[in-house]
Amino acid sequence: MLSVQLYSVRDLLSADQPGTLARLAEIGYRHVEPFGLGALHESHDERLVRARRLRRDLDAAGLGVSAVHAALPDAEQLAEECEIVGADTAFVPHPRQVPGFDAETFDDPGRLDAFADAIGAAVEAVDLRLGYHNHWFEWAVLPDGTTAFDRFWSRAHRDLLAELDVYWAVAAGADPGRELAELGSRAVSVHLKDGPAEVGAAQVPLGSGELDIPSVLREVSEVPWHVAEIDTTEHDPFALLQHNASVLTGSGTKAS
């Protein structure tokens, strides 16, 4: 099923959330993946107000929610926000979204184990599907020669889900097909974009960058959610997202 990560249009959302969501629906998206729930710099009341506003604007645009990207200030509070926006799944998109951790967490086996345990405790705490979304640094090589990515998932709670960002996996030198095979049924969503596969580089339309898109789409065909995303680009974001939606649906991803 097709979705789009709202971080792709973050500046446009800040300027005009209702209009931006309506435009995404107009170019063919029926589901979105919001970000910023559980924001650590906001109070719970502030987050609830923002969640209700988002739900109102999503309903007006006729958009559903595939999942959300969220911090973990408190698992029960996050579950309340997710219920408001209509999400049953939340992905932690970075270690810094869990109090006490940061990107360097994946360089240290002890801190990495503690991070996996912290998310595992949240999984146990609420009736909400929780998962983790990778960037590139998760493939740091640890002192024993294994990757932090493998150690994390070997330590992770059995019910923790995975959203594999295929682009960042390739940028890290990983094989997305191998990682999806290892994750198995944990992998319920993938992020799909294209570009030079370099940290900080602008992204381009699917099929015009370094990724072997036909091969990637075969590898992810059994994953339930295919999420289009832009981190940074020199293209018009709506035009790029419309192109990417056409590529994905033309390759078998269901639009709704």
Rank of each mutant, 00 (worst) to 15 (best):
Leu48Thr: 09
Phe137Asn: 07
Tyr29Val: 10
Leu183Val: 14
Leu128Thr: 02
Ala245Val: 11
Phe106Glu: 08
Ser251Arg: 09
Arg129Gly: 10
Gly209Val: 07
Leu183Cys: 07
Leu192Phe: 06
Leu58Cys: 06
Trp168Pro: 03
Arg158Tyr: 05
His226Arg: 10
Arg178Asp: 14
Asp59Asn: 12
Val227Trp: 04
Val227Ser: 10
Thr146Arg: 13
Ala39Pro: 00
Ser246Glu: 14
Val166Glu: 05
Leu112Arg: 14
Ser251Asp: 07
Met1Ile: 06
Ile230Met: 01
Leu112Phe: 06
Ala197His: 05
Trp139Val: 00
Glu179Met: 11
His94Pro: 02
Ala116Trp: 14
Arg218Trp: 07
Arg218Gly: 15
Glu229Leu: 01
Val123Gly: 07
Arg129Gln: 13
Gly145Gln: 11
Ala114Phe: 14
Ile27Leu: 12
Val216Leu: 15
His243Gly: 07
Gly19Glu: 10
Ala255Ser: 11
Asp236Asn: 14
Arg55His: 01
Ala245Tyr: 11
Gly177Tyr: 04
Val49Cys: 01
Ala228Asp: 11
Gln77Trp: 04
Gly200Asn: 10
Arg96Gly: 11
Phe35Lys: 01
Leu240Cys: 12
Tyr167Leu: 12
Pro93Met: 07
Leu72Gln: 03
Glu46Tyr: 00
Pro196Ala: 06
Pro109Asp: 04
Gly195Met: 02
His44Ser: 13
Gly207Pro: 07
Ala118His: 06
Asp231Met: 05
Glu104Phe: 11
Phe115Ala: 03
Val170Asn: 02
Val123Leu: 01
Ala22Thr: 14
Gly38Asn: 02
Leu164Trp: 05
Trp225Tyr: 15
Trp225His: 05
Glu229Lys: 00
Gln97Val: 11
Ala25Met: 09
Gly173His: 12
Glu104Ile: 06
Gly177Ala: 14
Arg30Gln: 12
His135Met: 04
Ile230Gln: 13
Val98His: 08
Thr147Trp: 02
Ile213Asn: 08
Arg30Phe: 01
Ala187Gly: 09
Pro224Thr: 05
Trp136Gln: 15
Ala174Asp: 07
Glu76Phe: 08
His69Cys: 00
Leu78Met: 06
His133Met: 02
Gly64Leu: 01
Asp194Cys: 08
Leu63Lys: 04
Pro224Asn: 08
Ser189Asn: 14
Ala75Leu: 06
Leu128Gly: 03
Ser246Met: 12
Gln203Cys: 10
Ala245Phe: 08
Asp57Trp: 10
Gly252Lys: 05
Pro73Met: 00
Asp144Lys: 12
Gly110Pro: 09
Ser256Val: 13
Gly120Ala: 15
Glu26Tyr: 11
Asp108Lys: 09
Glu83Leu: 13
Gln203Ile: 03
Ala125Gly: 08
Val220Asn: 04
Asp74Phe: 08
Pro224Trp: 06
